[in-house]
């Protein structure tokens, strides 16, 4: 039994239905996204990456953080194919995926994949960041098949 349903194009969820909130630990990540700059939270003392950003480094307990500019590319670690827009229940093909970020070992983001049919998304697929404006002037990183 195979799950190779023909879903068609994978779409990004409409930005106008998406809201986020921030705190002082996470806001630099979202501020960078507003400038279309993909970053991840890096310990300024030991160099370890962690996402989502949090107060302490789990390796060395440091609170010092770096926000390096990453290449904006990554690899699909896993994913799910969904077929209803969660905002209204209407038919809508989208693929939430867990992305391993290049240049930030151990850091992942959860985002939509676009630029291909949903049934063609696969683990190990290379992707490039693409920016989606959302509510309140924030910007969300999503990913396009590279």
């Amino acid at each position: 039994m195979s799950s190779k349903t023909a879903y068609g194009p994978a779409r990004v969820l409409p930005g106008e239905q998406i809201r986020i909130s921030t705190n002082p630990d996470t806001e630099p990540y979202w501020d960078a996204a507003k400038e279309h700059r993909l970053t991840a939270c890096q310990c300024a003392d030991c160099g370890r990456f962690r996402m989502p950003p949090s107060a302490y480094c789990p390796e060395c307990s440091s609170k010092a953080k770096n926000w390096p500019t990453l290449p904006g590319t990554g690899t699909v670690f896993s994913y799910v194919v969904c077929n209803k827009n969660p905002a209204n229940g209407e038919d809508y093909i989208y693929v939430p995926a867990v992305i391993d970020l290049d240049g930030a070992p151990g850091a992942r983001v959860n985002a939509n994949i676009t630029g291909c049919d949903a049934e063609d998304v696969h683990i190990g697929m290379k992707v490039t960041v693409e920016w989606t404006p959302i509510q309140d002037g924030w910007v969300l990183p999503n990913f396009r098949k590279a």
């Binding site: 969820l13 998406i18 809201r19 986020i20 909130s21 921030t22 705190n23 630990d25 996470t26 996402m51 989502p52 670690f77 896993s78 994913y79 799910v80 969904c82 827009n85 969660p86 989208y94 939430p96 995926a97 867990v98 983001v109 959860n110 985002a111 939509n112 683990i123 959302i134 969300l140």
Partner: peptide
Amino acid sequence: APNPENSFLQPSGLVGPGHLMAILARR
């Protein structure tokens, strides 16, 4: 409601436990 933590999950449309578990199953 969006909070600083779920803002790294919900915007991708992972809205139910089934979506989340499907990602683990796929791996």
